[in-house]
């Protein structure tokens, strides 16, 4: 018998079992942060070691893995993680959202709606939505335990008082099943509504902070807001310059040294798929002074 050079999906079986138990508890208590004994991974923390460990614990030989970073399949981070699992778990990989059974992501939810049977794994840097209000873990646990979320509402309301609208645009906190306040990871708040009632299973892994949490399919997820300042997602005045898509999240791309910019889909697979289908955007950079992105006030 020849022994493999590494464990399947890198992690040893004891570690996978521990992570798997944490995932199941997370599924049973949606939005609650389950502690787990995070392992050292052969990559730096900023690369999403929590998400990588969750993916490693669930991945099997029949899976098709997609990895995105800020919506793109081709960044160094995404390419490295995809290569890591192609090597250690010998899984098929894809850039097509619809073809993936497991999607690991940093900072975006794909534009194409996820479907039943898919699993999306979020890389989470700071899992505690109350951390900026209360640095002590013992205290935040008590707050979650007693459901004393007044403070986080105060912080959001201060945003309104200062800026006239809720200024938080990333990692915008949500409430899960009317119980736990949860950090959705640093996705743009544009993506928050996609979490609500998704037919896919959503798993969250924070490596440095050693937390796993989950949203089962069809879980009720509401972005925190106020009666006089309801939650709204970012809106874009222009369509994607390349594929003409509207209602998607656009990234600003500087196209020359005079500050000309264009706005293109952050989800590269979505953009490419649309262009393959024949959609064409205006394509040309717009002048530097024009503001295209507007945060809903």
């Amino acid at each position: 018998m020849t022994l493999p050079e590494y464990n399947f999906a890198y992690l040893d079986e004891q570690t996978k079992r521990m992570i798997r138990r944490s995932i199941l508890k997370g599924i049973a208590i949606p939005g609650y942060q389950v502690p787990f004994a995070s392992r050292e991974m052969p990559m730096p923390y900023g690369w999403g070691t929590g998400g990588v460990q969750v993916t490693a614990a669930i991945l099997g030989p029949d899976d098709v893995l997609k990895v995105i970073d800020q919506g793109a399949d081709d960044t160094t981070n995404a390419v490295s993680i995809r290569a890591f699992f192609a090597k250690t778990a010998n899984v098929a990989t894809t850039t097509k959202t619809a073809d993936a059974t497991v999607i690991q992501t940093r900072h975006r939810i794909p534009e194409a709606p996820l479907s039943a049977g898919q699993v999306i794994v979020y890389q989470v840097p700071i899992p505690e939505p109350l951390r900026f209000l209360e640095p002590r873990e013992t205290e935040t646990r008590v707050i979650h335990g007693l459901e004393e979320y007044g403070l986080i509402h105060v912080k959001l309301y201060e945003d309104i008082a200062q800026h006239g609208h809720i200024a938080t645009t990333y990692a915008y906190p949500v409430k899960v099943e009317d119980r736990y306040v949860m950090d959705p990871s640093p996705i743009p708040k544009f993506d928050n509504p996609k979490m609500n009632g998704s037919p896919a299973l959503q798993l969250f892994g924070a490596g440095r902070e050693k937390r796993i949490y989950a949203l089962p399919p069809f879980t009720h997820v509401v972005s925190l807001d106020f009666e006089d300042h309801p939650f709204e997602v970012q809106k874009f005045k222009q369509p994607c310059a390349l594929c003409n898509a509207t209602g998607v999240y656009l990234d600003e791309v500087v196209t020359d040294d005079r500050g000309s910019r264009m706005y293109v889909c952050s989800d590269t697979d979505h953009c490419e798929t649309r262009r393959e289908e024949g959609h064409r955007g205006p394509g040309l950079p717009i002048s530097g002074a024009q503001t295209v992105k507007e945060d809903a006030a």
């Binding site: 399947f8 798997r20 599924i27 049973a28 669930i58 099997g60 299973l201 989950a214 399919p217």
Partner: peptide, 19 residues
């Protein structure tokens, strides 16, 4: 095959509790 079998069972149990 403990590695593959436990993965297969886990995914089924995960689906059972997730759905």
């Amino acid at each position: 095959n403990p590695v593959m079998d436990s993965q297969g069972v886990f995914r089924r149990v995960m689906n059972a509790l997730g759905e």
